[in-house]
């Protein structure tokens, strides 16, 4: 078989099998699965609006998926994308509404860069702890998530709250910091989508076409050999985590500058956690993140119409997603079902 086809065969079959099992569950709950899936797929890409909304939902998954994939490539399990996402969002919203009087060509890049740096700093802390002290990054990224979530929650509710709002949220960012909408004000797709696609291509180039990327991957594959080859293992770990953090941070930035124009408290997006699934489905390949993020974003987006049409619980989508990941993780099952060796 053609190698690329082999690579993507298992993920495709995993998705297919999960959808079949999902169909059985839908039938058991007393709803026609054809109706439900028609709603789901029409909600994903059945109309101009649906397709655009799927791109909107895929945008943060592209970036947080990259954040986890970069970690995997560097031999690091970055569970901290959620926290890095929040820190990026927080920094960009602060720059977005407090810095006044700048022209858009300066204000927007400033908010983007500050947000990305904020995520990078947050990501590099567990990287540094791992490189210097050998502290496991899984533990520390999870802990950094809690700190970020509660910190952002506190700050939004007490320090940066917009007193005029019905829910706890910051004031809206200034128009000069907004990422432009690509199809006019009626559609929510913003330039952050292009930025995310560019980030995917950039990451692919960096990891597979540069010396730096080679070093990061070597450190990930075999730190001993990397050290023996004269590579800076500690430095590469910190760098990989910082890059991952920057990507997750940018995801949060995009949601703020492009989509919501504000940061609400108790805004449990879950993009950072779902990102682990997105990266797994993509087998940590940056290019693979694109279809993977579109699938996740599409399912999340299509779930709404599925519920409108059939009244079925939106949680079903989470079940299907979980099944996909189980089949990826235990790909022996898929190989056995479809007789692939």
């Amino acid at each position: 078989m053609v190698p690329i086809f082999r690579e993507i065969l298992i993920p495709i079959l995993a998705v297919f099998t999960a959808l079949i099992l999902g169909a059985v569950l839908i039938e058991i709950s007393g709803v026609s699965f054809i109706e439900a899936y028609r709603g789901l797929f029409e909600g994903m890409f059945g109309s101009r609006r649906a397709l655009i909304e799927t791109c909107v939902a895929a945008t943060p998954y592209l970036l947080t998926g990259l954040a986890v994939a970069i970690g995997f490539q560097g031999g690091l399990f970055n569970i901290g994308a959620e926290g890095q996402f929040y820190m990026g969002a927080l920094a960009s919203v602060i720059v977005g509404y407090t810095v006044q009087g700048l022209p858009a060509w300066l204000h927007l890049p400033l908010a983007l860069v500050v947000g990305a740096i904020s995520g990078a700093v947050w990501g590099s802390i567990p990287g540094l702890l791992k490189a210097r002290l050998g502290a496991h990054e899984v533990i520390n990224t999870i802990m950094m998530n809690y700190i970020a979530l509660k910190l952002v929650d506190y700050l939004v509710k007490n320090v940066f709250r917009d007193p005029a709002a019905s829910m706890d949220r910051t004031p809206y960012i200034l128009p000069t910091a907004q990422l432009p909408r690509m199809f006019g004000p009626d559609y929510r797709l913003h330039a952050g989508f292009l930025l995310a696609l560019a980030a995917v291509v950039f990451t692919h180039w960096l990891l597979f076409k540069t010396t730096l990327g080679f070093e990061i991957r070597t450190v990930g594959a075999n730190p001993g050999a990397a050290r023996y080859a004269g590579m800076n293992v500690a430095g590469n770990i910190v760098l990989a985590m910082a890059m991952a953090g920057a990507m997750a941070g940018l995801a949060g930035v995009g949601e703020v500058l492009g989509l919501n124009h504000t940061l609400p408290a108790a805004f449990s997006a879950g993009y950072g956690f779902d990102a682990i699934a997105v990266a797994l489905l993509a087998k940590s390949n940056p290019m693979g993140i694109i279809p993977s993020a579109f699938l996740w974003g599409g399912l999340r987006n299509g779930a709404g119409l599925m519920q409108v049409r059939t009244g079925i619980s939106i949680d079903l989508i989470s079940v299907i997603q979980a099944l996909v990941i189980m089949f990826i993780a235990a790909n022996q099952i898929v190989r056995w079902i479809y007789r692939i060796n």
Binding site: P264, F267, A269, G270, G304, Q307, S313, I314
Partner: peptide, 8 residues
């Protein structure tokens, strides 16, 4: 009906 999953 649609059950909202997050405030945004």
């Amino acid at each position: 009906f649609i059950e909202t999953r997050q405030p945004t």
